[in-house]
Amino acid sequence: MAYSAITVSFLSECVEREWGVVALSVQSFPGEHSLTCRFDTADGPLLAKSMTLTLGDAQRELGRLAWQVSVMKQAADSSLPVQRIMPARSGEEVCVFRRDDGRVTIVHVMNWAEGIRVDGVPMTDALAASIGDTAGRFTVALADHRRPPVDTGHHWDALNMGKSLDDMIAGLAGTEARDLVIRARALYAAQVEPVLADLPRQCVHHDMHDFNLLVSSDNTEQVAAILDFGDTTWAPRVAELAVAAAYAARATSHPVRTLGIVTDAYQRHVDLSLTEQQLIGPLACARLALNLATWTVRGTTRTDSYAADRSAASLPALAALLAEFCD
């Protein structure tokens, strides 16, 4: 998919024209393929997310984004702590802006979620349990949600992790991560791939990591918000637990124990099959391996700390989990 840069000034103009929002100040958060901005307004802060694509790519992206917005709305209606979409003055939840270069910019706006990112607070047992509880409630709330109308698979998708790991391994030559990633890939091949096609599937957020979960300053042991539905997809339901547990586990000095705490809390809501239970560890290993491999490779072309921040602590946690789940 071909992406193009978008400026803060252009996004501000789009939001003012279609949503009637005048920003008193703007804070930008550039992502892998998008630009997200906080707009401070007279009525409080809002979040605007945008992506600029070719016209052909935009058609698929609109289908994907509309489905993800519907997921957010169902989650919010189920009393989960998610942001609420703010329709434009036209009533549209996603607006499309044609650019002079023939590309289009897709924009949607939501309320701003206040809080502290989970990576900024200690990973206590209570917080780990809250993460598992939140992931379990999400699985239950979205169990009856419709399938997406377009392919929503991506690099991090549990269904694609084998290929994604293979694509990354070549770039790990001479790194400390390489042997661990290869072991995690072998574990995925041996235990996950043979049963992948038969696993129960549903709508999965697929990205409940420590950058995408917030806690409040009043209670740093309970999840207060789930952010970023950009990786939401149709995937094995156990992937929700595996992702959440993997990132919680890497934030402690006892990853295996923390993974168990998240799992126990999740399973108070979701009755996983024996096969699904057996895949929690291998899938968590694969996710941490992909995190480590991806940001190690991407870090070679960056001059800032973004890549290192995204994979911080993944290596020792992956080593500990592999020691537990590899025969």
Rank of each mutant, 00 (worst) to 15 (best):
E114G: 14
E114M: 08
E114D: 15
G115F: 09
G115M: 06
I116R: 07
R117H: 12
R117A: 05
R117P: 06
V118W: 00
D119W: 06
G120A: 04
G120I: 00
V121Q: 00
V121E: 01
P122K: 09
P122I: 02
P122G: 04
M123S: 05
D125T: 13
A126S: 10
A126G: 00
A126Q: 13
L127W: 02
L127C: 04
A128Y: 05
A129G: 12
A129L: 01
S130G: 07
S130E: 04
S130P: 06
I131Y: 03
I131Q: 04
I131C: 14
I131A: 10
G132E: 07
D133S: 11
D133R: 13
T134A: 10
T134K: 03
A135V: 00
A135E: 03
A135M: 01
A135R: 03
G136R: 02
G136C: 03
F138S: 13
F138G: 04
T139N: 03
T139I: 08
T139R: 01
V140Y: 01
V140C: 06
V140N: 05
A141M: 06
L142R: 01
L142G: 04
L142Y: 00
A143V: 00
D144M: 07
R146M: 08
R147Y: 04
R147F: 03
R147I: 01
R147S: 02
P148M: 03
P149D: 13
P149C: 03
V150S: 00
T152L: 00
T152D: 00
T152P: 04
T152Y: 02
T152N: 08
G153N: 09
H154S: 15
H155S: 03
H155W: 07
W156R: 08
D157H: 14
A158H: 10
A158W: 03
L159M: 15
L159W: 06
N160I: 02
M161S: 12
G162D: 13
K163R: 12
K163T: 14
S164M: 07
S164I: 13
S164F: 10
S164W: 07
L165M: 14
L165Y: 01
L165E: 01
L165A: 06
D166I: 12
D167F: 10
D167C: 05
M168H: 11
I169W: 06
I169M: 12
I169S: 01
A170V: 15
A170S: 15
A170E: 15
G171Y: 08
L172R: 10
L172A: 10
L172S: 08
A173H: 10
G174W: 08
G174Q: 11
G174H: 06
T175K: 11
T175F: 08
E176N: 11
E176S: 14
E176T: 14
A177I: 11
A177R: 04
A177K: 07
R178C: 14
R178A: 15
D179I: 13
D179N: 12
L180V: 08
V181F: 09
I182L: 15
I182Y: 03
R183C: 11
A184F: 11
A184P: 11
A184Q: 07
R185N: 12
A186F: 05
L187I: 13
Y188G: 09
Y188R: 12
A189R: 15
A190V: 03
A190F: 10
A190Y: 08
A190L: 14
A190I: 03
